[in-house]
Simulated assay, not measured.
Amino acid sequence: MARPRAFDEEQVLNAVREQFWNAGYAATSLEDLMRVSGLGKGSLYAAFGDKHQLFLRALHSYTDGVNGHLRKTLTETPRAMDALRMLLEMPIADADGAGPRRGCLMANSTCELGNADPDVLAHARRTYETSTALIGECVARAQREGDLPAEADPIALARALLAAQQGIVFMGRTGLDAAALTATARSLAAQLLPDPSGD
């Protein structure tokens, strides 16, 4: 009879995700994973597979959380236009914090591994398509509310907004301060989300 696992899988995934996020995939060793998880090699691999499988589990956990937060923000904000503007400013919150400017784990992983790892590339595409669909639904809601031109293509605008947001994430990694990032986000919002009344 198999013994029950004596550790919390979610806690382990959170710990290894932080390690991969801080150091990247290639620079994270098995010893690092054992240290942050508190598990031996046998327990770690028996539960999660090899380093690559563990990384994919951690990445999926991260993107599920990001898209869950995105869905909540876009659907629960009373006016869709406000939610779309918030989308552009989401990456700015930690810009002046004491922690490292780590950017987006999905974007970082795609840059590091996308050319060599088809699993990461396929997951990146699925993740960004999910994000695009969520943003597109919010764009369509803003159109119904009269805050965006009815003739705009919701998916095309959603992709532009997502690209703009990811650009702000990248600029934040370079050390640009929160005030400059906020000004950039608002400039992008003015161009991508014009007020149909012209005010």
Score class of each variant (00 low, 15 high):
residue 35 R to D: 13
residue 36 V to F: 01
residue 38 G to D: 05
residue 38 G to I: 02
residue 40 G to M: 07
residue 40 G to F: 05
residue 41 K to I: 11
residue 41 K to N: 13
residue 43 S to K: 10
residue 43 S to D: 09
residue 44 L to N: 01
residue 47 A to V: 06
residue 48 F to D: 02
residue 50 D to N: 15
residue 52 H to F: 00
residue 52 H to L: 05
residue 54 L to C: 01
residue 55 F to V: 04
residue 56 L to P: 03
residue 57 R to Y: 00
residue 58 A to K: 04
residue 59 L to Y: 04
residue 61 S to P: 01
residue 62 Y to R: 07
residue 62 Y to T: 03
residue 63 T to L: 02
residue 63 T to F: 04
residue 63 T to N: 00
residue 63 T to R: 00
residue 64 D to E: 15
residue 65 G to L: 10
residue 66 V to T: 09
residue 66 V to F: 06
residue 68 G to F: 06
residue 72 K to G: 08
residue 72 K to A: 13
residue 72 K to C: 08
residue 74 L to D: 03
residue 76 E to H: 14
residue 77 T to E: 13
residue 79 R to Y: 13
residue 81 M to W: 07
residue 81 M to E: 12
residue 82 D to L: 13
residue 82 D to V: 15
residue 82 D to R: 12
residue 83 A to Q: 03
residue 83 A to P: 03
residue 85 R to W: 08
residue 87 L to E: 05
residue 87 L to H: 10
residue 87 L to A: 04
residue 88 L to Y: 02
residue 90 M to R: 15
residue 90 M to T: 14
residue 91 P to Y: 04
residue 96 D to N: 15
residue 96 D to Y: 07
residue 97 G to H: 11
residue 98 A to E: 12
residue 100 P to H: 05
residue 101 R to C: 10
residue 101 R to S: 12
residue 102 R to T: 07
residue 104 C to Q: 00
residue 104 C to I: 03
residue 104 C to Y: 02
residue 105 L to A: 02
residue 106 M to P: 09
residue 106 M to W: 00
residue 107 A to E: 04
residue 107 A to T: 03
residue 109 S to R: 06
residue 109 S to G: 11
residue 110 T to V: 11
residue 110 T to F: 15
residue 112 E to T: 04
residue 112 E to S: 07
residue 113 L to T: 01
residue 114 G to H: 08
residue 115 N to S: 15
residue 120 V to Y: 01
residue 126 R to A: 13
residue 127 T to F: 14
residue 128 Y to G: 04
residue 129 E to W: 10
residue 132 T to Y: 01
residue 132 T to I: 03
residue 132 T to C: 09
residue 133 A to T: 15
residue 133 A to Q: 14
residue 134 L to A: 07
residue 134 L to H: 05
residue 135 I to P: 00
residue 135 I to K: 01
residue 135 I to D: 04
residue 136 G to H: 03
residue 137 E to M: 12
residue 137 E to Q: 14
residue 138 C to F: 09
residue 139 V to C: 06
